[in-house]
Amino acid sequence: MWTIPNIVTAFRVLLIPVFVVVYFLDWKWAREAGAFIFWLAAITDWFDGYLARKLQQTTAFGAFLDPVADKLIVAAALLMITHTYETPWITVPAILLMLREVYISALREWMGQRGGSHEVKVSFVGKAKTTAQMLALIGLLSGLEVFMGIPLYWVTLGYVLLYIAAVLSIWSMVIYSLAAWPHLRNAANSDNKSADKL
């Protein structure tokens, strides 16, 4: 169970409380340090997948733990930026992103039980959403617009990318829902037939 990729994934889970505590420290560079830890976690997400394929160490435990780790740290980051900025311009897309994650997780679990998990596997749009979301969160968590007199506009870019991620999340949710629709319709028809028999 404890292969190298799984250890990297477990390390990402352990980074979550560190990330949260550091971000809220009463320290000048706390937000920047928290953003760096989040970035490190995002890098390990790519790294553990690469190692699993390279070392041929794909496991059922890793397939379970990896998306759980991703969703936990992203949910924490979304909650933290809504707390930090306290504006509907951040809160609304953050809620949309969290609702999408819950919906897609439930849909994939249901499809997996029906042997159709391959039909709702991660798409290009889903990967683009994840990339935009991660970059947006790094920028918004850091709070950096200027560093040593150099304009960075990371927060501004974070706002833009957060909305791009929200749009892509809705788009990907529609794609996954359409892929699962035949299964959902068949399940509804089966339920109706069972109800008629009763």
Rank of each mutant, 00 (worst) to 15 (best):
A69R: 04
A69V: 04
A69T: 07
D70A: 07
K71M: 02
L72H: 10
I73S: 01
I73P: 00
A75W: 04
A76F: 05
A77S: 12
L79K: 10
L79Q: 10
M80G: 09
M80W: 01
I81P: 06
I81Q: 05
I81R: 08
I81V: 15
I81T: 08
I81D: 05
T82D: 07
H83E: 15
T84I: 12
T84A: 14
W89L: 13
I90E: 02
I90A: 01
T91M: 14
T91F: 12
T91A: 14
P93E: 06
A94W: 01
A94D: 01
L97N: 01
M98Y: 11
M98L: 15
M98G: 13
R100L: 01
E101T: 04
E101P: 01
V102G: 12
V102N: 09
I104A: 00
I104M: 03
I104G: 01
I104R: 02
S105F: 01
W110K: 08
W110M: 07
G112A: 06
Q113Y: 14
R114E: 08
G116I: 11
G116L: 15
S117E: 15
H118K: 14
E119H: 14
F124W: 15
F124G: 10
F124H: 08
F124S: 12
V125T: 15
G126V: 03
K127H: 03
A128P: 05
K129G: 05
A132F: 05
A132C: 07
Q133R: 00
Q133W: 00
M134E: 00
M134N: 09
M134F: 02
L137M: 04
L137G: 07
I138N: 06
G139R: 02
G139I: 06
G143A: 10
V146L: 10
F147C: 01
F147T: 02
G149A: 07
I150R: 15
I150P: 06
I150D: 10
P151I: 09
W154Q: 13
W154Y: 14
W154L: 15
V155Y: 08
V155F: 05
T156P: 00
L157S: 13
G158L: 09
